[in-house]
Design a binder for these strands. Structure first.
Lengths: 254, 254
DNA sequence: GCATGACGGTCGACATTGTCGAACGATGGC
DNA sequence: GCCATCGTTCGACAATGTCGACCGTCATGC
């Protein structure tokens, strides 16, 4: 039976739609957005609601995502082997570098953050686990594009969205940068997504040397860079953390 | 068309099954566990995989939950009105009390943690957003049971699971405690779930005075209690935070 | 090394099941 | 007070998902 189950694909589309829009959506909005009959959309929504994937505001009748998704998302993290192995190394890296640490994996056309260690100083910070970052303008993303053909495929041929004046928006530029990344073994992104923010990332491999994710540190340009380049000492810290995690996953010695 | 969509309910059951078991599950295991034909289970799993809700380990062929669930779970938090309003108040409460703060909502037969502020001292702590706590043995849970008939219904008639010697396992005891909670307006749980841990919780209401969640502080008995009772000053802090959040939700003055 | 069993995956026939579009009652805005 | 729009229900139809047998592959163990 090759071919997806129609009702399931539609349910997934509805949930993605609800995740996208900031506010709650009404039945009719959902139905027209996905070009479904109202009755059909209602049946799917009712089932999703029953299962806890969707909730309905009792007074307005509008729908939003449900709590079960949060619970299952947490379960995903619990089973995630890469994340489990990386926890302690990410902690050490954050302490050694004095900066925020992110751990990301390829998901669709972006990098999904699966772990986030706050910068050791205790300024207010928001947990970003579960959020996505672009592939073409972040250290995490470029590492994955450089080493994972699937990620390069997802990236497409551009032009890519521009976030700052330093964002690479053309495929040729990104590919050239990726060649450099492969050559030296690490990636950086200085003010390519957010002004004032620089990051340094390196690849994580599994036991068969397949790329499975990336780790990076991220912080203000003033602290991460020196004379216009990222500090070599930070690069070394990130690379050694990436190696340690890969070794933990069984990738063997380097 | 009253009646859930069969394939959707089955898909939900599969995801819950995958979330429950610690390890990855094979196709046959899934099929027999849910009493489905292998072909049917495979069709559902393939669709779920295509949508990113499930991932398959390429070498073993076994299935586990997928990254899309994490992303959607995060989106759930983003839209969550209670959580959004409570963020700043929870922060203040943690600072004022010097203890960990949890924000929870009723979900199925437990309390789902939707926000978690670390204790201000910087000992290592694990984020518990997305995890569940029992209804009958935590401050959050008992608050909800006391004020929300739905929560009381989910609790059932017991006997309930016992975690420590102080856990209330009989429905009559819990109901008596809930009457007390309603009378004085707050709940506590001293070593009822974890030895050495005490917590104090209070109700959060929406604009129509419906119970929508609860907030609590949690910490070591030695700091939270005094002479065998929870410290009145902490109770006051928790209650005023709960009132502030409720007011933010439009519940009006008290 | 060969037979065996269990595994994930595929196929095609069947009828169950989800889909559609119209119709209903409730709600809110002009 | 009317009209438009909302979420929801209903029944008929056939498209759709389900079932059980079958295939190739891998690991196991005589």
């Amino acid at each position: 039976m090759p071919g997806p189950i129609q009702s399931l694909s539609r349910a997934a589309a509805i949930m993605r739609l609800l995740a996208g829009g900031e506010r709650r959506l009404g039945l009719s909005e959902v139905a027209t957005a996905l070009d479904l009959a109202k009755g059909t959309a209602h049946g799917i929504l009712r089932t999703l609601q029953q299962e806890g994937f969707v909730e309905q505001d009792p007074e307005s009748g509008k729908y939003q995502l449900g709590a079960e998704l949060l619970r299952l998302g947490q379960s995903y993290l619990d089973v995630h082997e890469l994340r489990a192995r990386a926890l302690v190394w990410a902690d050490d890296l954050a302490r050694a570098a004095g900066e925020t640490v992110y751990l990301g994996v390829l998901h669709q056309q972006g990098v999904l953050i699966v772990h986030h260690v706050f910068r050791p100083d205790d300024t207010r910070q928001v947990l970003e686990v579960g959020s996505m970052q672009p592939l073409h303008s972040t250290a995490l993303g470029k590492v994955l594009v450089a080493y994972d053909p699937v990620a390069r495929g997802e990236l497409g041929d551009g032009p890519y969205e521009s976030y700052t004046v330093r964002t690479l928006t053309e495929a040729v530029d990104v590919d050239a940068e990726c060649a450099l990344i492969r050559e030296r073994g690490w990636a950086d992104a200085v003010e390519e997504t957010w002004d004032g923010v620089a990051s340094i990332g390196a690849l994580i491999q599994d036991r068969r040397r397949n790329p499975v994710g990336a780790v990076c540190i991220s912080g203000p340009v003033e602290r991460v860079c020196e004379d216009g380049f990222v500090k070599p000492s930070l690069v070394a810290s990130v690379r050694s953390a990436a190696r340690a995690i890969s070794r933990d996953l069984g990738a063997g010695r380097f």
